[in-house]
Computed example of a mutant assay.
Amino acid sequence: MSEPYVLVLFYSRNGSTREMARQIARGVEQAGLEARLRTVPAVSSECEAVAPAIPEEGALYASLDDLKHCSALALGSPTRFGNMAAPLKYFIDGTSNLWLTGALVGKPGAVFTSTSSLHGGQESTLLSMLLPLLHHGMLVTGLPYSESALLDTRGGGTPYGASHHTGSDGKRPLDEHEIALCRALGKRLATTALQLEKGRG
């Protein structure tokens, strides 16, 4: 049996969601678990897949096995009209076999997003991303208000999951509160996964 890991699965167009994924992974590792960063290929209306089989740089593309064998999942996407981006939705729509076999039942899951405008649909995107996790029987892990950054943030951050306000040009870096909340989410996922693993042992 492989060592437990948290799958940090994301789609990122301009790098902001990817940076959030890295910060979440850091939180996972600080809590003592491996973080496995994975992404998904872009899609288009002309043809479903527009990317090579292996990305030229950055995280590898996720496989269903990455998802099946994870101990916990952090799912991230930029906001697209208050919803997750099509490439991530396309990947999630292909997980029916995992649903049929109950592969993700009882595993902790969390979500994260980035938007160019402060009120650009962060919360609706996070809530919509939680729906497939609930259908898979996952245990939703949000951010409690015991995280002081949630009360102090002037950018992203919600109880539904980590978020980031990129600014209209998409180049605003994560601020200290957004970083703290990403890491807190990663730690929370990893800690919950470890507690569940101990309970099964």
Rank of each mutant, 00 (worst) to 15 (best):
E178D: 12
G161F: 00
D65C: 15
I92W: 04
T79L: 03
A42S: 11
T115D: 07
G120E: 08
D175M: 01
V6T: 06
P132K: 11
S148V: 05
S12H: 00
M129N: 01
L189F: 01
I24L: 04
R188L: 12
G102D: 08
A25Y: 08
I54M: 05
A86S: 11
T158S: 14
L60P: 10
I54N: 12
M1C: 10
P41E: 05
G161P: 03
L100V: 13
Q23S: 10
M138H: 09
I24Y: 00
R188F: 01
R13M: 10
L133F: 11
F81R: 14
C182A: 09
L64W: 06
G121F: 00
P4K: 02
E19R: 03
T158W: 05
N97H: 15
G199A: 07
Y5M: 02
C182S: 04
D66L: 02
T191F: 07
L60W: 08
R38M: 08
V50P: 02
S124G: 03
S114E: 12
T153Q: 11
F91Q: 04
R38A: 01
V6Q: 03
V40P: 01
T113N: 14
Y160V: 07
L185Q: 14
F81N: 15
G201N: 14
H177Y: 10
S117H: 03
A72H: 09
G121Y: 00
P108R: 03
G32R: 08
L37H: 01
